[in-house]
C-alpha cells in the first residue's frame, strides 16, 4: 500500500489516473461478463420454451419418433440426425481449443520461438483462422441440417417442434455468425499490423464470447438432440 503513496488529496500520478479502475480490472472485460450473464437468461428462455413444447406438437414430423401422416399416408422418419450433429458438436469444441491457442499466441507474441512446434503454437494468425474456419464449418453443418429438415418436411411453420427448434438453434447460429465476423475482423487486424500483448484484452473478450457460444451448444446438444 505504501507503494501507492499519494499527496493528501487524490492525485494518482499523471497517466495512471486516466486508466485507474477500482478493481484494477479493465472495463471491457467486466462489460462482456455482464453481457454473458444476460445471455444466460436469453438462452434460458429459448431452451425452456423448447422443453415446454416438447411432445406437444399436434402434427409431425417429430424429432425422435417416426410419424405417418394420417391424411396422406406419407411416412416421416425421426427428424434429428445424431451422427451429423455429433460431428458438428465436435467441430465447435475444437474451435474452442483453437480459440484458447489464439489467445495464448497473442499474449506470448514477444516470446522467442525456436522449434517448429513453438512457431506453430505461437502463430495467432493460424489459430484465429482455424477458429473462424471451424466456426464456419459448424455453420455449414447447420445450413445442411436446416435444408435437409425442410426437405424432409419440417419447417419453422410446420409444428411446435419446428418453431421452437429452428428458433432456438437459429438464435445460436446467429451468435456463431456474429462470432465468426468478429474473428475475421480480428484476423484482418492481425494481418494488417500484427496482434500483440496489448491486444490481448480485445482477443480475450472475443474468446469469452466464443466459448460462451460453445457452452450454450453443449447444453443444446444434450437437451435437444440426445435426451429423447
Amino acid at each position: 500500500m505504501d507503494s501507492f503513496a499519494m499527496p493528501d488529496v487524490i492525485v494518482p500520478a499523471a497517466g495512471v489516473e486516466h486508466t485507474y479502475t477500482t478493481t484494477g480490472l479493465p472495463h471491457r472485460k467486466i462489460g462482456i461478463w455482464a453481457f454473458i450473464g444476460s445471455e444466460c437468461m436469453l438462452f434460458a428462455s429459448l431452451i425452456s420454451t423448447y422443453l415446454i413444447y416438447k411432445g406437444r406438437s399436434v402434427v409431425g414430423p417429430f424429432p425422435h419418433e417416426a410419424w405417418t401422416d394420417p391424411s396422406t399416408g406419407h411416412h416421416f422418419r425421426a427428424i434429428l440426425n445424431i451422427p451429423v450433429t455429433s460431428a458438428s458438436t465436435f467441430v465447435l469444441l475444437m474451435s474452442s481449443l483453437a480459440m484458447v491457442l489464439a489467445l495464448a499466441a497473442v499474449e506470448n507474441r514477444d516470446k522467442p520461438k525456436v522449434t517448429m512446434g513453438e512457431k506453430i503454437l505461437g502463430s495467432s494468425k493460424l489459430w484465429l483462422f482455424m477458429t473462424a474456419l471451424l466456426g464456419t464449418t459448424f455453420l455449414g453443418f447447420q445450413a445442411f441440417e436446416f435444408t435437409s429438415f425442410v426437405h424432409e418436411g419440417v419447417s419453422i411453420r410446420t409444428n411446435l417442434f419446428g418453431s421452437s427448434f429452428f428458433t432456438l438453434t437459429g438464435f445460436h447460429g446467429a451468435h456463431v455468425t456474429a462470432g465468426v465476423l468478429w474473428l475475421c475482423t480480428m484476423l484482418a487486424v492481425d494481418f494488417k499490423r500484427g496482434l500483440g500483448p496489448k491486444d490481448a484484452l480485445n482477443v480475450d473478450i472475443m474468446a469469452l464470447y466464443w466459448h460462451f457460444v460453445d457452452v450454450v451448444w453443449i447444453a443444446i446438444f444434450t437437451l435437444v438432440y440426445l435426451i429423447r
Binding site: 507503494s3 501507492f4 479502475t21 478493481t23 484494477g24 479493465p26 500483448p197 490481448a200 480475450d204
Partner: peptide
C-alpha cells in the same frame, strides 16, 4: 491501491 501496485499495468487479466 494494492491492485494498482501489484499489477503494474492494468490489463487486469
Amino acid at each position: 491501491a494494492a491492485a494498482l501496485a501489484a499489477q503494474g499495468h492494468l490489463e487486469g487479466a
